[in-house]
Simulated scan of single mutants.
Amino acid sequence: MRTVDPDRHAARRGAIMAAAARCFSEKGFHRTSTADICAAAGISSGNLFHYFPSKQAIIVAIVDREAEEVVALFAGLREMEPLDGLSRFLDLILDLAADRAYVRLALEISAEASRDPAVAARVARGDGILQGALRDLLADAAASGAIDSALDPAAAAVWIGAVVDGLFNRVSLDSAFRPQDQGAMVHRLVMRFLAPAAGTVAP
Rank of each mutant, 00 (worst) to 15 (best):
G166N: 13
V164W: 04
D64I: 09
A111F: 12
Q180H: 13
R100A: 15
A146R: 15
A39K: 15
L96F: 09
A67H: 03
M191H: 15
I93M: 04
C23P: 02
I160T: 06
F177D: 00
D152S: 05
A142E: 02
H9N: 08
I58F: 03
Y102S: 03
S172D: 00
F193R: 09
A133V: 08
A184V: 04
E69A: 11
E68G: 13
A118V: 10
L107N: 01
S25C: 01
R188Y: 09
A97H: 13
L86I: 04
I43K: 09
M17W: 09
D95C: 10
R122W: 01
P117R: 09
I43G: 05
G76R: 01
A39G: 02
P153N: 13
K55G: 10
H9E: 08
R135N: 13
A156M: 11
Y51C: 00
H187D: 05
T34W: 11
A111R: 14
A118W: 06
I37M: 11
V103W: 00
A98D: 02
L90E: 10
A106M: 13
E108P: 07
R65I: 06
G183V: 05
I129S: 04
G128R: 06
C38F: 11
R22L: 02
L138E: 15
G132R: 07
V158S: 01
C23R: 14
L167P: 01
C23V: 11
Q56K: 14
L92M: 14
A195W: 10
A10H: 01
I43Y: 03
P117M: 13
F49T: 15
G126Q: 01
V4F: 05
V103K: 02
V63N: 00
D36N: 01
K27W: 08
S45L: 09
D91S: 12
A40M: 12
D181W: 08
A139P: 14
V158A: 14
A20F: 10
Q180E: 13
A67K: 08
Q182N: 02
S114H: 12
A198S: 11
G132W: 11
I93Q: 09
E112I: 05
E68I: 08
D7K: 10
I37N: 07
A111P: 12
F24Y: 04
A10D: 05
E81A: 14
C23M: 04
G126H: 06
V103D: 02
S33C: 07
A106C: 03
R13E: 09
R2W: 01
I93P: 02
L48R: 05
S33F: 15
A157V: 12
I93V: 03
A120G: 03
Q56E: 06
D84W: 09
R22Y: 07
E69K: 13
D165Y: 10
T32Q: 09
D174K: 06
M1G: 05
A197W: 13
L105N: 00
I129Q: 13
V119R: 00
V4I: 02
D174L: 06
S175A: 00
R2M: 03
F177A: 02
A156G: 10
A120Y: 04
A106Q: 12
A155N: 12
A101M: 04
F52Y: 04
L73W: 15
I43H: 02
P196E: 12
A157I: 06
V123K: 05
V190D: 11
L134D: 08
I43N: 07
